[in-house]
């Protein structure tokens, strides 16, 4: 539809703004709005699965990770302003302008090459997938059919990469060995109204996450999006509750065992006599549930790693100011 031009223009404006603004917090807010526009654009381009994933990731989780990581580190505004007036900074601004012109030129050359040589090669894969995905896999959503049946190894490596990313994050943030982290995370509860109403909302959000996971092969959504919704319950809990009864080590073990389950279950695709038409749909639902739980554990671990790091930084700051 022609409305998408408006969204594209807003996206370009927000990208420029988030690069050029000085304060990092504000750049992150711009990035959140950018990803909202991005997701609505995907929806208009007939990709509701992608739209769900981008909305879940971009506007809430990535924004939260950025904000927790830069909290307490942002420079004071006055300091930056006085830095901008010095002649050294003027030279730096001139350098920025120069590199901007260079990159505009390179981009223009690449675009002219692209639009000069693009050719239509047809869509044989599209024809095959769209014709036969219902009879081959039993799914009603072609995207789920592809990432859980035709190209399941992609999904396996994606899950592995998420696991490795989470392990690397926990490693870099120096998770304390042997201590019980649930004692360390002390939350500062939000206002009473938010706490009460989000307490009312938990069961519905959980129910909705399970609905998205289990219906992943029929409607847009699936394991990843539903798992992110379940992880958002943890995030809301952090803001609402006084005490978090969460043990991160148990979550990590659960994530690894869910990953093993995904590998074992996807190996069943190698046994064709086992996969009759009833079992295919059951297999899809089971895979979606496992992926959902794995992603839920993983994203919750990511969020709490950063939260733990931030509380540690605030503790050391307070100690150095006091002492």
């Amino acid at each position: 539809m022609p409305v998408t031009i408006v969204f594209l223009l807003a996206m370009v404006v927000l990208a420029v703004a988030s690069i050029q603004v000085r304060k990092a917090e504000i750049a992150v807010i711009y990035l959140g709005i950018f990803s909202l526009f991005n997701a609505i654009f995907y929806l208009f381009y007939s990709a509701p699965d992608l739209s769900l994933a981008e909305a879940v990731i971009g506007s809430a989780l990535a924004t939260a990770l950025f904000l927790v990581a830069i909290k307490g580190y942002t420079l004071r505004r006055t300091q930056i302003k006085s830095e901008y007036r010095s002649p050294k900074m003027r030279l730096a601004l001139f350098g920025e302008l120069f590199w901007g012109v260079v990159f505009l030129t390179i981009g223009f050359i690449v675009i002219s090459f692209y639009f000069g040589t693009v050719q239509d090669v047809g869509k044989p894969a599209w024809y095959h997938y769209v014709r036969s995905f219902i009879s081959d896999t039993g799914a009603r959503n072609a995207v789920t059919a592809i990432y859980l049946n035709y190209r399941v190894f992609d999904t396996l490596f994606e899950a592995l990469l998420l696991l490795v990313g989470i392990l690397a994050t926990a490693y870099f943030l120096e998770w304390p060995e042997g201590k019980e982290p649930e004692e360390e995370i002390a939350t500062k509860p939000d206002s009473e109204i938010v706490a009460r109403i989000s307490g009312l909302l938990y069961p519905f959000i959980l129910l909705y996450g399970f609905y998205i996971i289990v219906n992943g092969h029929l409607t847009p959504g699936g394991g990843f999006q539903g798992g992110a919704i379940l992880a958002s319950v943890f995030i809301i809990r952090y803001f609402a509750q006084r005490r978090l009864g969460i043990n991160i080590f148990i979550l990590q073990r659960l994530e690894k065992s869910f990953f093993l389950g995904i590998i074992a279950l996807s190996m069943l695709l190698l046994l064709p006599e086992f996969m009759n038409s009833d079992f295919k749909v059951f297999h899809l639902v089971l895979m979606n549930i496992l992926i959902g739980f794995k992603v839920c554990c993983g994203l919750a671990i990511l969020f709490f790693c950063f939260i733990f790091q931030q509380t540690k930084v605030e503790d050391t700051k307070g100690r150095s100011e006091r002492g």
Partner: peptide, 23 residues
């Protein structure tokens, strides 16, 4: 099924707003 997407948007705009406002 597009209304599922709308519900998730309203949920995650709420979560995102609370997160940004807190931080």
């Amino acid at each position: 099924y597009l209304l599922d997407v709308a519900l998730i948007y309203s949920l995650f705009s709420f979560v995102g707003t609370v997160i940004i406002a807190r931080f």
